[in-house]
Amino acid sequence: MYWVGCMASYRVKEIAKSTVKILKHAQISFETLGSNETCCGSVLIRYGMLEEVEKLAKQTITTIENKNINTVATSCAGCYRTFAKDYYEYLDIKPPFTVLHTSQLLADIINNGKISVPDLAPLTVTYHDPCHLGRHMGIFEEPRQVIKAFNTKIIEMKNSYMNSNCCGAGGGLMSTYRELTAAIAEDRLREALETKTRYLITTCPFCVYNMRKTAETLNIPIQVMDLTEFVIKRIEGKL
């Protein structure tokens, strides 16, 4: 099942669209919860509203369980961490299904040859490890494998992998202290600029939304995109 998540459903829809396009291209059968999908509670966990999340978590798990789903793939690094770690860590609830982030699914699809990679001109990009996916969950290599599979070279930022710097959108700051979120995003974008690449790829809709918006506001010449957007653009020859 493809778990779209609130950010990709409402705020960065290109991520949801790109993901579905890729899955169709690879002829993977999947379903979504459609308009029955609700917030997984990730943001509420970050706010410390742990009691409020409990009901939400149980409800979400039951909905997925009732559909006899074995594997759930998420666009959002926050949803991924919530399903794979936080429900258990903070609420002692273990979801009865496997959770993947779309970057893991993509790496798998590519490894199994389900996507035919066209001949492409070489490209250089940099990659931002989202905190929720990288440092918190140890997923560093899969997104990089996917990028490299499309004849693309990654120039690493000064701080990457375990040392990656936050984009500023975490911990509920995007709603409480928006100005600070933007300031931290600027710091990260400046690090990305040092790589002299034009594209910043990442794997979390919060990071995409925040850094894209900040780059636009401050006229920072770097294009921020989600891994799925990158992949579909490369497949379609638009990048």
Binding site: C6, S9, T32, G34, T38, V43
Partner: peptide, 19 residues
Amino acid sequence: ILNTGNPFGEPEQTRTTWM
């Protein structure tokens, strides 16, 4: 989230507009 199922307060039925 409690009223609309998403943090933004967007109508539930528009969740799938992107599709």
